[in-house]
Design a protein around this nucleic acid. Sequence first.
DNA 1: CTTGCTACTGGACGATCGATCAATTAGGCT
DNA 2: AGCCTAATTGATCGATCGTCCAGTAGCAAG
Lengths: 197, 197
Amino acid sequence: MIDATLRSLERHGREGASIRRISAIAGVSSGLIHHHFRSKARLIAAAYESLAIELQETLYRESADHGGSPRERLSALIRASFAPSILEPRILNVWLVFWSMVMRAPSMRAVHDRTYRRYRSILGRLLQAVGRSRGVRVRARPAAIALSALLDGLWIELCLSPGTFRPTEAVMLCESWVDALCGGALPQLLQPRKRRS
Amino acid sequence: MIDATLRSLERHGREGASIRRISAIAGVSSGLIHHHFRSKARLIAAAYESLAIELQETLYRESADHGGSPRERLSALIRASFAPSILEPRILNVWLVFWSMVMRAPSMRAVHDRTYRRYRSILGRLLQAVGRSRGVRVRARPAAIALSALLDGLWIELCLSPGTFRPTEAVMLCESWVDALCGGALPQLLQPRKRRS
DNA sequence: CTTGCTACTGGACGATCGATCAATTAGGCT
DNA sequence: AGCCTAATTGATCGATCGTCCAGTAGCAAG
C-alpha cells in the first residue's frame, strides 16, 4: 500500500498524492486506505519515512559492499548517490511532494528531522573515519552538513535538467571536496589542534 | 497579478497554485486571469521566470554594492543568499511548486534551464575573477555548478528545518569551499597549467 | 448456528478545481 | 455621438478531491 503511494507519486507527481489514484494502483478501494491510515496525511507521512529509510539503507549497503577502506566506502556512497537508479527524475517528484508538506504539517517535519539526522550521522561517521585514516581530525557535524548539501544540490539539479552536466561530473565535484577536506584545505571543518586562551 | 501568484504560493504552498486563490488575492475575477494568460500553466511559468530573475538581480545587486574586490563581492553574494529575506521558508514553497512542474511541463523546463544558466554564468564569472586575483585559473563551469549546488543544498535544508544549523554556518561552509578553491586544493576545478600530448 | 470483530467495498456528500462564455463596462478613434 | 476593441465580471460546467459511512465478506470463538 505504501509502495503504491510511492509509485503514484513517481508517476503523477504532485497530483499523484490522491487517495483515489493510490487506491487504484494498489488495487484496493479508497475506503480501505482510510481504514488503515486515518487520513491521507498519515499515509503520506508513512510513505515518506519508508522511502527515506530505504534510500539510506541502499546507500549504506552500497557503501559497505564496495571497498574496505573508509575512503573507498565513501567513494562508493558518492557514486551510488548518482547511480541511474537513484538519479531517476521521477523520484524527485516524490521528494518535492514530501518537502512541500514538511513546511506545513508538523508530523512531516518530525519525519524529516529524524531521517535527516540519521543521514548526517552516517555521513559524519564516514567522513570522520576517512579523516582519521588520513591523519586529520574531521568535525563530523559541519562536514556532514556540507557534503549532504553538496550531494543534494547536485542531485536535484541533475534530476531537474539532466542535460546540464553529467553524473560523473557530480561525482568528481564531491570527491574533490572530500580530497580538499582530507588535505586540510578546509581548516574550519577540522578539530583545532590546540586551544588558545 | 504575477505578484499575487507568488504571494498565494508563499501563503498556501502547493494548494496556492489555484486560479481562484490567486484571483482572490489579486482582487480580480477568475476569468480575467484566463483572459491575460491563456491557461494556469502559463501564469505559473510567468511567475516562475519573474521570481527567478528578481532573485538573481537581488543577489547581484547585493554583490555589486558591497565590496570592491571580487572576493568581497562573492562573500556578499554568499551572505545575501542566506539573508533572512531570502531564507524565509515560505519562499521554498514557491520553488517546490515550480520544480514539480519543471518535471512535467516542457515550457517550465525551458524557463528553468534559461534562468539556471544565467545563475551559473553569474557565479562562474565571479569565481573566475576571484581566482584571477589569487593567481589561479578557475574553470568557471564546474566551479559554478559546485557552488550553486552547495548554496542550494544548504538553503533548502535551512528552509526545511531552520533549527538544524545556523545561517552563519552555511556561509562559513561556502566560504571555506571558495577558500579551498582559491588555495588550489580543488585541482580538478582549475585550468591545467600545461597540456601534455 | 450465532455472535463479534476485522478487512474491505463502493457510493454519496460537499467542496474545490480549471476552463469556458455570454454579458457588461471602459476607453480611444472617427 | 456612434462604434469598435479590449478589459472585466460572475455564473456555470464537468471532473476530481478527501472524507464519511452503511453494508458485505471472511473468520475465530462461544
